[in-house]
Design a protein around this nucleic acid. Sequence first.
DNA 1: ATGAAAGCGCTAACAG
DNA 2: CTGTTAGCGCTTTCAT
Lengths: 350, 350
Amino acid sequence: MSKHNIRLKDIAEELGISIPSVSRALNNKADIGEETKRRVFELAEKLHYQRNQFAINFKNQQSFIIGVIIPQIVHHFFSNVISGIIDEAENLGYGVMLYQSNESYESELKGVETFQKSMIDGLIISLSDNTFKVDHLKNLQEHNVPVVLVDKVNPDMDSAKIICDDYKGAYYATEHLISIGKKKIAHITGSLEPHTTRERCKGFESALRHYNLPLVPNLIKKCNLVSREEGYLTTLALLAEPEIPDAIFCATDPTAIGAIKAIKEKGLRIPDDIAVIGFSDWKMSSIVDPPLSSVSQPDFEMGRKAVELVVKEIQLTRENKPVKHETHVMETSLVLRESTLGKSKKVPLN
Amino acid sequence: MSKHNIRLKDIAEELGISIPSVSRALNNKADIGEETKRRVFELAEKLHYQRNQFAINFKNQQSFIIGVIIPQIVHHFFSNVISGIIDEAENLGYGVMLYQSNESYESELKGVETFQKSMIDGLIISLSDNTFKVDHLKNLQEHNVPVVLVDKVNPDMDSAKIICDDYKGAYYATEHLISIGKKKIAHITGSLEPHTTRERCKGFESALRHYNLPLVPNLIKKCNLVSREEGYLTTLALLAEPEIPDAIFCATDPTAIGAIKAIKEKGLRIPDDIAVIGFSDWKMSSIVDPPLSSVSQPDFEMGRKAVELVVKEIQLTRENKPVKHETHVMETSLVLRESTLGKSKKVPLN
DNA sequence: ATGAAAGCGCTAACAG
DNA sequence: CTGTTAGCGCTTTCAT
């Protein structure tokens, strides 16, 4: 049990050679005799030698760990971002530490602290909705830990960023509603604090303007949590307006699902009376009745790209080369289902 | 930029004292002068000293990192297990590294390898459905890295385990169907390889037996992936039987959702003609139409408990004390919704 | 091709 | 109370 782990020293002694020689052999260095190398490998194998990464990390001051902070894992979008991150990190030889902020700034601070204790080489973070200061992240940068912001970004941060084109996604979603003949389109937006929801709102307005549709203030409703409950209540409010909309673009899928519930309860048909489209293409969106059209974000790909950027910066930083922070804007795509298309089109189960 | 990080040495030199004194001060050791301590803290503060955890980890041969391998993050159940893990790990001063196996044995091996490189102190793992050998885990144990199995366990592993009472959950689910007057109850089971599905099947049969209902072989259908698609197809097969069931207990929620789709397509009413109950209480289960009754597992709590066990074993191992591997069986609970209760009972939105 | 020596940053053991 | 010494396991000079 407590038999100490095998060290280079053990192998060296057993073979009657020096420790550096063993090291050189195991690391396939050039200047080492073939015969020696063979004997070292053989014995290492036999003793089940495992390099002590603590020593190596210590020597190189490098952990090969990337820290990841996201608001909530349970969200389908973030699960997929994380999958992309883990995948690409594996490819590049990095491990991934995870922390969730639960949309709390204080939690986010704690996460950064935990990560500093674990000596992460780089950080990928999607900011909590309640994070307005970024000193904790700048602090990391000052300690030569590159930071990459994903999706939920902050203009005060001078760092690499991965965002998706929320503006265009919203524009296309709205354009789609117009294309199926809708004229009185409502928008349920979230808190306008996060960059993402603000862009979605802008894209919506821009599409209306472009197609010469009136921008009716009463048809733009704000809710803070963009939850199902809120979507439900907000839609009920919309339906109580003197002139009700014939389509609703919701800033998130849960809101849209709430909206669907409200519309169905009122005995209205989807999409004939009111079409509904959401944003983010949650897993559950294909399961609700009717299946929800939505704007799909390249979540997995965003994760991959984030790792690519952060590792690039890690390497440049280690080589003391100047780093230029890239911002990657990724394209969204429309996933059209019955909530806007109706039964006409056969929609696959998945 | 490349100004090297502050070390104890820098502080010691600036203050004209020895390095150990600085160490003692910073660590609030007993035998250090108040005045010295004050000066050290002051300067450390001023220089933004941050302890170099690489050195400490190296010295203690300890990372304060727990590795976690699960099949798929996107699954609601696992997301919540992970949340529980991160939460409790934070409490106990540990960070969490994450890896997903995607139900692949090879992937799982890679995960263990990655983790070994990162020198995890302990591992929490939910085995992939294709993992039948556990040498990789035993290897970890031999290197004094405690392993805790969660939910997907393996009898060959001599380790701590967290499981939930699938048998009882299935029993209660079936009993509930009986209690609402159902007599011809079908069961859609998964591959009988994993311990979990096997127990669910046993619980189902046991309840039928206990209530003197016949065990009709044709009403027990197996599908391998327990996916929505499979649930749909399997249910269609069930409905093609000469005598169709009046209730279906599905081994997972996705299967149940597929079942609902099939039943609705056939023009049958839920639950009047056929009641449906699932297992795991996925987020989406409350959203489908009708909302799905299900057996809820204490996912978050399972995660917490896993951390508790693994940390306990880590500590015992470090102190060279004997460790007794505990197995924790956690209770499930029924979440009843319209798919078995009907509209009668007002079901809350959440 | 190999060995000897030094050092990464920190802490524990031992003196005084 | 404080300083000196040593060592965690490995790699990287610098000799030979």
